[in-house]
Design a protein around this nucleic acid. Structure first.
Length: 290
DNA sequence: GACATTTGACCATT
DNA sequence: AATGGTCAAATGTC
């Protein structure tokens, strides 16, 4: 069963890459590669490489699914083995520290672009504040397994550590084309985290007015697996160094980027400010270029 | 009534 | 055994 899901996920990834390619350059929708030297050609080239990776993975899986176990490639054998294992899945995990300018502005936490549903809360040993557990609202509708944990900092109650686990496989609504219901969800759904008593909540600030102190880090990845991000991603480097980039001149410029493991994560190993969550999310979404 | 949140219980991991 | 993570029934909100 999980094997079928793997095929479905790969097919979905391939289709989404096709859509992204068409979106970036509709005139190339029927060709397999680009010979253009336009600024977007690097992106098209990288998307083509992603598509080839999907095709290769699907062909490997298709070639190994017909025979007995002795013919199954190791990766499929591993997948099948996990069917009977009750061990908790080791999922990609990374965390952010989000600073709230004041307790009264908690309601104005920047939306991370996804719809979350709270499924639990638990007091954590040694922590003054409970930890909230959230999963993607599309978990059942689209099988999205992304979750996040929200923990208020003991030392600085205005800081929240948000730990994301797993990658979204749902069709994330675009910011500019979000359905009405998604644009204005109930506040508890838009910013679901441990909230102070309601009487402490005041007028929420406009999202663009909220200053952020945000760090991104990974804490379950062996340092030996880290590799410099920029040398493997000239496109990302050019985006950051570009004169039009919102990161130009900010603390982010010149920072060290890391691609971790198999390219699952992007890490910015220090704090920075004056960058909106949307900007960071947009750039971190380039993780596939690792 | 539909959907989201709360909360105690259960389970996996260490 | 202690702890963290998830489930699911109860409850709340719109």
């Amino acid at each position: 069963m999980e094997f079928v899901n793997l095929i479905q996920e790969l097919n979905q990834g391939r289709n989404l890459a096709h859509q992204l390619r068409d979106h970036l350059h509709p005139s190339l929708s029927s060709s397999s590669s680009s010979s253009s030297s336009s600024p977007s050609s690097n992106g098209i080239l990288l998307i083509d490489q992603i598509l080839r990776s999907y095709e290769n993975a699907l062909s490997v899986l298709a070639g190994g699914s017909g025979g007995g176990d002795e013919e199954i490639p190791p990766i499929i054998a591993a997948v099948k083995h996990r069917d009977v294992s009750k061990k908790r899945k080791v999922m990609a995990k990374w965390s952010e520290l989000v600073k709230i300018p004041s307790v009264s502005a908690i309601g104005a936490l920047p939306d991370d672009g996804f719809s979350w549903r709270k499924y639990g809360q638990k007091d954590i040993l040694g922590s003054k504040f409970p930890r909230g557990y959230f999963r993607c609202s599309h978990r059942f509708a689209q099988g999205c397994s992304a979750t996040k944990l929200v923990q208020r900092s003991d030392n600085d109650p205005s800081m929240y550590e948000i730990t994301y686990r797993g990658k979204h496989t749902c069709n994330k609504p675009l910011h500019s084309n979000t359905p009405k219901q998604e644009q204005n969800p109930p506040q508890s759904q838009q910013h679901p985290m441990p909230m102070p008593p309601k009487q402490e909540q005041e007028e929420p600030l406009q999202q663009q007015d909220v200053p952020l102190c945000l760090t991104v880090s990974s804490d379950n990845v062996d340092d030996s697996l880290r590799r410099p991000f920029c040398p493997l991603s000239p496109l990302f480097r050019s985006e950051v160094e570009d004169a039009q980039s919102p990161f130009r001149g900010s603390e982010l410029e010149g920072l060290e980027f890391w691609c971790i493991g198999d390219g699952d994560l992007v890490s910015v190993p220090s704090s920075f400010t004056n960058i909106s969550m949307g900007d960071l999310e947009e750039y971190c979404s380039l993780e596939s270029f690792c």
